[in-house]
Simulated scan of single mutants.
Amino acid sequence: MAHGIDEVARAAGVSTATVSRALRGLPNVSAETRRRVADAAAQLGYVASPSAASLASGRTRTIGLLTPWINHWFFANVIEGAERALRTRGFDALLYTFEVPRRAPRRRLDPDVLRRRVDGVLVVGLPLEDGEVEALRDLGRPLVFIGTGVPGQVTVRLDDRTTGRRATEHLIDLGHRRIGHISGSPFDVAPASPPVERREGWLEAMRAAGLAVDPTMETHGHFDVEGGRESLATLLRQCPDLTAVFVASDEMAMGAILAARALGLAVPDDLSVIGVDGHDLGELVGLTTMAQPAVDEGSAAATLLLDMIAGAPAPAEVVYPTTFVERGSTAAPRPPAADPVHR
C-alpha cells in the first residue's frame, strides 16, 4: 500500500513541510532530521511526486537556459555540462534559443516565455541590452551568466583578455610581426564580452611588442567555420603581408585554415593560425589553440544557480583560465626570399 507524506511526517515526528524540505535537499534542515525523514520514507516506501512537490513549494524544478546556438562547440559543451549538473540534483532544463542573423541584430529577448515555468535562468554567451536584463530580473528568479557577463550579476567566464594576449604573444615569440585577428559578430560590442576581451588581448600584446595595428588587420567571422573561411580571404585581400592570425574561436580558425589552403598557402609555412576553445576536431587539423573547459564551466554555472535557488550565497564571478595547446598550425615565419645577385 502506498504511503503519503503525512504518514512519513508522523513516523519521523516532523511536519510535512520539513519532510518536503529534507527530501528535496533544501537548507535549514539538520542532518539528524534529514536522516530520520529519509529512514521513515524508505521504511514506508514513500516516493515524492515531482508534480506534487512543485505545487506544494511553488518550484518547477526546471531551469531556463537561454542561448543563441546549440550547434556550436562552446555552446553545446556548456549546455552538456549544465544539464549533467541539473540532472544530478533532479532538475530539468527548458531550452530557449535565438536566431542570430549575420548582417542584422538579433530579435529581442521575451522573458515572458519563462514566467512561472522556471526556478532560475542560465544565460549562455548571449550579450543582452539593459532592458533585457531588467526584464529577466523582473522574473524574480536567480540568474547566472556564462561567457558574456552583466555587471552586478553572477557570471562564469573565461579570462578572455589574458587568453587573447597569450595567443598573440605565442605568435610574436615565434617571430611574427604582421598578425591579423578574426573576431566574432560585429554587433557584439558589449564591454567584457568574450570577442571584445579577446580583441583587447590581441591589441595589448601587439602594442607591448611595439607592433603596428590598423583596421585592415582585423575582421569578423561570426564564430563558425564558414565565417572563418570568408574572413580569412577578406583579411588577406586587405592585408596580404600577414604571416599569422589570431582567431577568436577554433571553429573560425578551422575555416581560416581551409581558406588558406584554397588560396594556395601552406599552414604554418606561409600563415600561422591559432584559435581559442580546444575543439574536439582541432587535433585533426593540427590546430594550435587556447583550450577552455567548457563542460566544467556549464556544470559550475548550473551548480551555482541551484545553490542560489536553495538560498546559498554566490560569488560575483568564477573565472577560468585557458591552457595553451601547441600543434602544427603555428611556426616561425618563412624567411624572406633573398634578392637575386646581379653581376
Rank of each mutant, 00 (worst) to 15 (best):
I5C: 05
E7A: 14
A11F: 08
A11M: 12
R24C: 10
G25E: 07
L26V: 01
L26I: 00
P27K: 10
S30L: 07
A42P: 01
Y46G: 06
A48V: 14
A53C: 13
A56S: 13
G58A: 04
R59I: 04
R59Q: 13
L65S: 06
L66C: 07
L66R: 05
W73F: 15
W73H: 15
F75S: 10
N77A: 12
V78L: 06
L86E: 00
R87L: 12
T88R: 13
R89D: 12
E99Q: 15
V100H: 05
V100F: 08
R102F: 12
A104D: 02
R106Y: 08
R106Q: 02
L109K: 05
D110A: 14
D110G: 09
P111W: 07
D112C: 10
R117Y: 10
V118T: 04
D119A: 09
G120Q: 09
V121L: 03
L126N: 03
L126M: 13
L126I: 08
L126T: 09
E134P: 01
L136M: 06
L136P: 04
R137I: 11
T148P: 01
V150N: 00
Q153N: 04
T155V: 14
T168A: 05
G175W: 10
H176C: 10
P186T: 06
F187L: 06
F187P: 01
F187K: 07
P191S: 13
P191T: 13
P194C: 07
V196W: 12
E197I: 13
E197M: 15
R199A: 10
E200W: 13
G201N: 04
G201C: 04
E204C: 08
A208D: 15
A209L: 09
A209M: 10
P215N: 03
T216W: 06
G227M: 05
G228Q: 02
A233N: 03
T234M: 15
T234L: 13
S249I: 09
D250E: 07
E251L: 09
M252S: 09
M254G: 02
M254F: 03
L258Q: 02
A259P: 01
A260M: 02
A262G: 11
A262T: 11
L263I: 01
L265H: 01
D269N: 06
I274R: 02
H279K: 08
G282W: 07
E283Q: 14
D296Q: 15
G298Q: 08
G298M: 07
T303V: 09
I309V: 15
A312S: 11
P313F: 10
Y320S: 05
T323I: 13
T323V: 14
F324S: 11
G328M: 11
P335G: 09
P340I: 12
V341K: 09
H342P: 08
